[in-house]
Design a protein around this nucleic acid. Structure first.
Length: 570
DNA sequence: GCCGTTTTCGGCCCGACTGTTTTCAGTCG
């Protein structure tokens, strides 16, 4: 069983414990889930190597939880959860996916109205039953319906950051199947869209049957929807649909173009082909019956008179015209970040020490990293006040002496309070190398108030970066209602950097915002917001979004050397 | 349920916000 699956089960138990007022147990399970998720090794491997004793060496995993993890690995289930499910037979995950619905609400819904899932909840809400519950009213009933509506709008899609590692693994396996010459992940995953609907694999092989047999026989496959000569469509156990398309090598480029999309981009390309007396399909670019391009994407674009368009830009949002003019921007390459300007450590809600985080960042080839733990308003994380911040500064000084060829910067993620004031004194912020400010509360202010709030923060001379500027959470919470033009304008005017936060569920700024901000002359940082060593991997997603926003290397300050990067700050 | 150089028992999870309230429970980060 994979770590993500184990963590999922632990989280469900955590919610159940919360419902039963097992408050501290809930916390323990939640912590254990996080611990498992941030492992760089599979828990199953650890267990196979040294049993539950070995699991118990992981901080946050004790006797009871290690046993349950053992059960999960051995049998795929744990008695504890089965018992809880008997007592409260509700779809916890389904309901918890709604903004504003938590453990206690779920419990009440079951006890008073026998509601098990979102479908039942929606029915009750539409029937005016929710407002009759204790501590609920018309407003909360309407809120619930709005949450359901929101979730529905995004249903059936998966976060890129969750899906990509799974898809990469499948890709790797496909590449080893005898006969397979080339294989890519196509579709929206290749375009690095923040969420993806299904997975598209494309293979060039001399033995199509073998590749298809392998694909549908993978342990990840729940059932096979259809299979033809060149295509298999399956449902994965994760709930995602996946298809495998098999083509000849001479068509691989045309097919990867065709299956990467998006649809509008492809239509635009086919129109150009027609206008030049050619025909473009998934097998190649043709003049009459003769294939004049097809084995590589590059030649397809070239023969159409276009510069090659990176997959992330293929949304028909002006890139085709730009490519036709030969004016494609040189968008930021993966792997070009030299530092990370937002990280959290065990001083607050991160899992690792300053030294551990810095060592990992260095290992990944970076030259600097800012430690930006939460400020005091984020009390549950142990957010830093002015005094604790000073203590942390001393630890950073010590750590820096131990690091070679790497610099740890003193920073903070300071809360922007409701009125636009900051959560820490200017005198404390002034001493830091880098100050990121962000919104973690009052997401629903009016556009005017919310915009003023952020503008106020940017006007502070100490605020260098606005972290996750819109505070959205993908599939859960809309971006704050902000006058983005005013924000971008103020960012440029004050020299405030805007962050592209790389967390899979944030990706904030969003691609279209990034592009708009760039056009207004803003500068950016791409940060992992890492809370654990593994989270540095998310930088890939951040760069992906930056590429979708047409950013070039020069737009992103943490592609610069430390000295030059610091000069970009206020 | 986890943890331990103040503790093997008794701490851990705090403050803001919202909607329901007339003093507070639930959610969020």
């Amino acid at each position: 069983m994979r770590n993500s699956e184990i963590a999922r089960v632990l989280r469900i138990i955590s919610v159940y414990e919360d419902m039963m007022d097992g408050f501290f147990k809930a916390r323990a399970y939640d912590r254990a889930a996080r611990a498992i998720e941030s492992l760089t090794e599979e828990a199953e491997d650890i267990y196979r190597r040294g049993g539950k004793e070995e699991l118990m060496k992981i901080p946050g995993i004790g006797l009871a939880i290690s046993e349950k993890i053992g059960d999960l690995i051995e049998t795929g289930r744990t008695e504890h959860l089965e018992e809880l499910k008997k007592r409260l037979p509700v779809d916890v995950e389904d309901l918890m996916g709604l903004e504003g619905v938590g453990p206690k609400t779920i419990k009440t819904l079951w006890q008073k109205l026998k509601i098990r899932d979102i479908a039942g909840l929606e029915k009750a809400a539409r029937g005016g039953k929710i407002r009759e519950l204790p501590r609920f009213g018309e407003k909360s009933e309407a809120d619930i319906l709005r949450s359901i509506e929101f979730k529905r709008k995004h249903s059936g899609r998966f976060l890129l950051g969750q899906a990509l590692p799974v898809l990469e693994e499948i890709r790797g396996r496909l590449a080893k199947v005898p006969g397979v010459k080339r294989v890519i992940i196509a579709g929206s995953a290749r375009r690095m869209r923040e969420t993806i609907g299904d997975a598209d694999f494309l293979v060039a092989t001399s033995d199509p049957k073998r590749a298809m047999d392998f694909f549908q026989g993978m342990p990840d496959v729940e059932h096979v929807f259809s299979r033809g000569k060149a295509k298999v469509l399956v449902g994965l156990k994760s709930g995602m649909d996946a298809d495998l398309q098999v083509v000849e090598e001479k068509s691989f480029g045309a097919a990867s173009q065709y299956f990467t999309g998006n649809k509008d981009h492809n239509v635009a390309l086919r129109r150009i082909a027609i206008s030049k007396g050619m025909k473009l399909n998934e097998y190649g670019l043709y003049r009459g019956d003769r294939q004049i391009a097809g084995s590589s994407e590059e030649e397809v674009y070239e023969k159409l008179g276009l510069e090659w368009v990176p997959p992330e830009m293929r949304e028909n949002l002006g890139e085709v015209e730009t490519a036709a003019k030969g004016k494609m921007p040189d968008i930021i390459p993966y792997g070009s970040l030299r530092g990370d300007l937002q990280t959290q450590t065990s001083w607050t809600d991160g899992s690792n020490s300053i030294m551990e985080m810095a060592s990992r960042a260095k290992e990944l080839g970076m030259e600097y990293m800012a430690v930006t733990d939460h400020s005091k308003r984020m009390a549950f994380t142990g957010g830093l006040d002015e005094r604790k911040l000073e203590r942390q500064a001393r630890e950073i000084d010590t750590a820096n002496k131990k690091m070679r060829g790497f610099t740890i910067l003193k920073g903070i993620e300071v809360d922007i309070l409701r009125d636009g004031k900051l959560d820490l004194k200017d005198s404390a912020l002034k001493k830091l190398d880098i100050v990121g400010a962000s919104i973690h509360s009052s997401f629903n202010l009016s556009r005017k108030d919310q915009t003023e709030r952020l503008v106020n923060a940017m006007e502070n001379q100490n605020v260098d970066i606005i972290f996750h500027p819109t505070a959205r959470e993908i599939q859960k919470r809309e971006p704050c209602d902000l006058d983005m033009d005013a924000i971008f304008d103020k960012a440029r005017e004050t020299g405030t950097i805007l962050e592209v936060n790389a967390m899979p569920n944030r990706l904030d700024l969003r691609d279209d915002h990034i592009r708009a901000a760039k056009e207004m002359g803003c500068k950016f940082s791409i940060d992992s917001d890492a809370h654990a060593l593994k989270h540095f991997d998310y930088l890939l997603l951040g760069v992906g979004q930056a590429r979708r926003g047409w950013l070039e290397k020069k737009d992103v300050i943490n592609t610069l050397s430390l000295d030059r990067m610091l000069k970009e700050l206020k």
